[in-house]
Design a protein around this nucleic acid. Structure first.
Lengths: 348, 348
DNA sequence: GCTGGCACTCGTCATTATGGAGTGCCAGCG
DNA sequence: CGCTGGCACTCCATAATGACGAGTGCCAGC
């Protein structure tokens, strides 16, 4: 019927769907008798068994041991998610709640935190949201303030809700008026242009040895450069509701939990995974080992990028057991990403 | 021999000490035979048993069930910690390491984070450090910058490594020069005075209807007041190494873990507990239920306040199982508190 | 007051028995 | 040819059993 599944009958797919749904709901291996009752198809357990044997041969389901029922394999879940899933439309009241919580006055850090809690609260899984990338945000203004002989405070105003400051270590003392001149120059040059552009211009300026650059300008450029390059603050994403994962039988043994939580704290692996989602088109789902990280072997990750001005600036999603309620989770993640984007868009 | 322990023999105490040490080391109930071998005292198991019966009557030890060995009760640990403990002096290289890690250029947030990781790394428990209170820090300078019609950015310079900014929502637009005047006025008035003092002055100014206050001054005062009162950022303490706690058998069941980690995320209870330590004189130890929080029933908390200019500005410590190596942990927490204080003290 | 001895209590661990759920296969039916 | 009922078989879970060892409490004797 389809190039992807040439040798797999409609009926088998139907059964895979029923089996997966049941397993997600109950968490127990599903037997032929149960499936015969619940699949909707009217076949005897024996028939079901034959089909199940086929599905097992195809690697879509497996039995934990002889004479237990079957559970979906990663490939089984994959097929379920890709072609069988009937997503549950999100009820309007939830959307409203999210919108009101996210659409109030927030700086981006608190927006991200709230979004993360919302995700985890609604899905009862772990929520995860990256901080929005700033490269394409425009620089509204720069100010420098002298702090001490060797330190200067740089204030970068990105929007009227978003301000960053960085303390620069400088070689020599600068007077207040020097700094004032520098920021005047920079504001004239760069205000309103986006950060990435600004950074590139600065580098160009520093390389060129233009005759028309006086000492002040040189100072200004150098200072701006170090202000922009100062390490981004450590937290690249925010997680919430990790403890929700302790609810699930299949994750609840000390070894698994330990690995998982250490991975969360380490952040690096999660970050890599999320980075992949920035480029990938739209929503992405990693099931079990698909993620490639051992700590997530028993977990699935559902992510969606969120955008400002049509440009992807971050990723959000949830982490839960492979056996999560995809049909419920997917629309939630999707909606959250859209609302998040909307909340970040400049309005006034 | 002492009003507190009139009816308890030196020998019994000796045994309590040996038993506790052994239990802390091995994590298994300790029997009379073992104790007879290891206590240093030369008594037969039978004698030891008699003494142990006494200790049990006094509520210092108990057996998990008939015919298991004994383990210390909370009161047992209490007596052990208060009067029997021989603390292990801290080796110099560890202290050096801590000093170099903490004494480098840090703002207070990153200082706290590093201290917390250090504590957890060295003790293999969970480390916990509150952010330093700012009330007694002096205000070096204030600046205001206009952001948009209804927003003003306030920058509070506290030291040359410590800057805070707050976005104020204001009723009407202010011009740059108005704001400049306001900050000039405030700097003249308050620069170098401590935050608490400044806050009090501001309130006094706002209440009084002094004739010599012009509109500019009034603006300045009101703005400074809202800048100072803006909610302190959410994180009041920083934890690290929570996952270390998963190493311990006695904490490692899902229910306990869940309670514990949810408590950590909730922060409130931990915060209350730490608040008690600000006032308490010096190092404090909560053993098991002594803390009064159910989530910590199986844990002990060792804390020490850290000071700047002889004033307590924060608390740090570790959380671990009741069965932690107090004699090692106590000097570590103590040293960390001192080094932390030193690192926070203004130097230049 | 200390000690060795003895009976007793429990928890741990491995073994065994039992029941139930589920499978695979086969023969028969439409 | 596809579906079905029947049947033997496998394997997990649970409980029951017994041996073992660690540890206790108590007592009589030194």
């Amino acid at each position: 019927m389809n190039a992807n599944k040439p040798d797999i009958s409609e009926r088998a797919l139907q059964l895979l769907k029923a089996l997966t749904e049941r397993y997600i709901r109950e968490g127990q291996p599903v037997g032929s008798r149960t499936l015969s009752r619940e699949s909707g198809l009217n076949f005897s357990p024996a028939t079901i068994r034959n089909v199940m044997a086929d599905l097992e041969d195809l690697g879509l389901i497996r039995s934990p041991h002889t004479s237990a029922g079957r559970i979906p394999t990663v490939q089984g879940y994959r097929m379920f998610v890709d072609t069988l899933l009937t997503v549950k439309p999100l009820d309007e009241s939830t959307v409203d709640r999210m919108r009101t919580e996210l659409d109030t006055d927030h700086d981006s850090k608190s927006l991200v935190t709230t979004a993360s809690s919302l995700l985890s609260g609604i899905t009862h899984l772990a929520g995860i949201v990256t901080l929005p990338r700033r490269e394409h945000a425009s620089l509204k203004r720069v100010e420098f303030l002298p702090l001490s002989e060797h330190r200067v405070l740089a204030v970068l105003v990105i929007s009227d809700r978003e301000v960053q400051n960085r303390i620069l270590n400088v070689e020599r003392p600068y007077t207040a008026s020097e700094l004032q001149q520098a920021s005047n120059y920079l504001n004239a040059q760069f205000a309103g242009r986006n950060l990435e552009e600004v950074r590139r211009s600065l580098i160009r300026d520093m390389k060129s040895d233009r005759a028309d650059m006086d000492r002040m300008m040189r100072t200004a450029v150098e200072m701006a450069d170090s202000a922009l390059n100062a390490a981004e603050e450590g937290d690249d994403f925010v997680m919430a509701g990790e403890t929700n994962l302790m609810e699930f039988e299949e994750l609840c043994n000390p070894a698994t939990l330990r690995q998982l939580f250490e991975g969360f704290n380490r952040k690096r692996d999660i970050l890599h995974l999320l980075d992949q989602c920035v480029n990938g088109a739209g929503m992405q789902i990693f099931i079990g080992e698909e993620s490639g990280y051992q700590m997530l072997d028993e977990c699935s990750v559902v992510t969606a990028p969120y955008t400002v001005d049509g440009r992807v600036v971050g990723v959000l999603g949830v982490i839960g057991p492979t056996r999560m309620a995809y049909e419920r989770v997917i629309p939630i993640v999707d909606a959250t990403a859209r609302i998040m984007g909307a909340a970040l868009n400049p309005r006034e």
